[in-house]
Nucleic acid binder design. Sequence first.
DNA 1: TGTAGCATGTAAGCCGTTACATGATTGA
DNA 2: TCAATCATGTAACGGCTTACATGCTACA
Lengths: 181, 181
Amino acid sequence: MSQDLATTSYALLGLLAFEGDRAGLTGYELKQRADSTLRFYWVAPAMSQVYTELGRLARLGFITGDDRRSARRTTRRYRITDSGRRALRRWLATGQPEFPVLKHPIALRLMMGHLADDDAMRAMLEEYERDLLVRRAELQEVRTSLGDVAAYRYPAMVADWGLHYYDTEQQMVRELMARLA
Amino acid sequence: MSQDLATTSYALLGLLAFEGDRAGLTGYELKQRADSTLRFYWVAPAMSQVYTELGRLARLGFITGDDRRSARRTTRRYRITDSGRRALRRWLATGQPEFPVLKHPIALRLMMGHLADDDAMRAMLEEYERDLLVRRAELQEVRTSLGDVAAYRYPAMVADWGLHYYDTEQQMVRELMARLA
DNA sequence: TGTAGCATGTAAGCCGTTACATGATTGA
DNA sequence: TCAATCATGTAACGGCTTACATGCTACA
């Protein structure tokens, strides 16, 4: 069963692939991983979608979920299967990736600056710069936690990529504010 | 009628706002504008969605469409109304913008590099660099066409922002390729 | 003892895409 | 005359979000 999945499915499957032979992740935990890493260069899917995707991936045999009963509660931990790992490899090898899509509300609004005033636009950019620094700090934490071990070589590269992006973005925001002053 | 519209609606309304008192745009033309400018920092909506949004905006009174009959064919040109301009100003002034979302399939795949090999990852980045240059050239054309006139001051800033982004992105891609070599 | 966080789902609905349908106009 | 481009829509459907629903567990 090959099946064409949406990219988000592969993204989540990819997160599970990093767990190796560990006990696996609950849907809740997977959502946390997505929030802390995936969100920087893909999306942070809603909780409900995480469960939907887990159901789909399990039906395809790409992951297995085993129930852990503890007195009164049952939680389910998912692990990637060999078939899932193959599917992920196939996806990586075939089909070339689309060009990135940037949804940039600040740039969009700046484009319409003639309907507002420079002060408002500058204030918007200032606010954006603050948010940018918060985001950067969060990503820096991720980067630090990855360290320099071989196992996390690729995620580390992606994190560095993101940090570089935030740095140059901040620099450009400053230039734009100067242009508005 | 205030109504909360999706950002894409405002984006298209914003494009119409640039037409000033000209004859207006057909849905087809609006789609072309979106493809050549909006796509760099928002999205390029499908043709069908452009018509859907046009219908919505017209129902709200934010735009008016007048029919041009020419022998056998009727085309409709839309112009922004005063009410539409007010709605756009209101949207710009209130409600602060969300943080940008980047959907970056190349970064996503690089994250899973341990499932492929460095050669494949490097090839992917090379391909991406080529695409990046094509995009950059397209945006440069837009930038050039905007010139340095006051009327296009803001779109010009946004275009410069985009060019800066593509430049730093290319630089980073080269660094990553070196790291993989 | 109460509240924040852990944990799992279903339902309704919006945004946006692809596929489908149709036809006019322009220029090689 | 034929193909590309202009031009306008509708239908089906997928992806994803928000809202709804439910209950456990740890800890202050």
